[in-house]
């Protein structure tokens, strides 16, 4: 289950960037081609976040559809299934432009009033 390793890494990244503050929400981008099962990731996250600054944070997972540019005709296609095929000319020589994302986009952190406004 790679969701477990992914969740561990997300917790690690969020904790590091939180700098001691409590994390309330984590925005995560996941490309469709990553084969991440959202429910498995949510479950794993709950498991591994316990006892960390990220505990109780909401995991906001945004799935990014796969898309690509045809190297033959230059058309952009949304790619729903394999083979990855150009919707305009049917060509198979596609350069992926999205669908392989896997990153922590941003965090929502709780801040004490005296620390805000700086």
């Amino acid at each position: 289950m790679h969701e477990l390793s992914i969740a561990q890494s997300v917790v690690e990244i969020a904790s590091r960037h939180a700098g001691g503050r409590r994390v309330t929400r984590i925005y995560l981008k996941v490309g469709h081609l990553r084969q991440v099962v959202p429910s498995a990731l949510a479950f794993s996250f709950e498991l591994v976040s316990q006892g960390t600054p990220v505990e109780a944070a909401e995991l906001d997972l945004e799935e990014v559809p796969a898309a690509g540019m045809c190297r033959v005709c230059g058309a952009e296609s949304r790619l729903e299934s394999f083979p990855l095929r150009c919707a305009a000319c049917g060509g198979l020589d596609i350069e992926l432009t999205s669908g392989e994302e896997l990153y922590v986009e941003s965090l929502e952190l709780e801040e004490h009033p005296q620390e805000t406004g700086s």
């Binding site: 992914i6 890494s9 997300v10 690690e12 990244i13 969020a14 960037h17 309330t24 929400r25 995560l28 896997l102 990153y103 922590v104 986009e105 941003s106 965090l107 929502e108 952190l109 709780e110 801040e111 004490h112 009033p113 805000t116």
Partner: peptide, 19 residues
Amino acid sequence: MHRTAVKKVVLEGVLDAND
């Protein structure tokens, strides 16, 4: 105590450390 939420942009790949 009143707390406010702030957003922090991270843009860090989940697999960056492994890579």
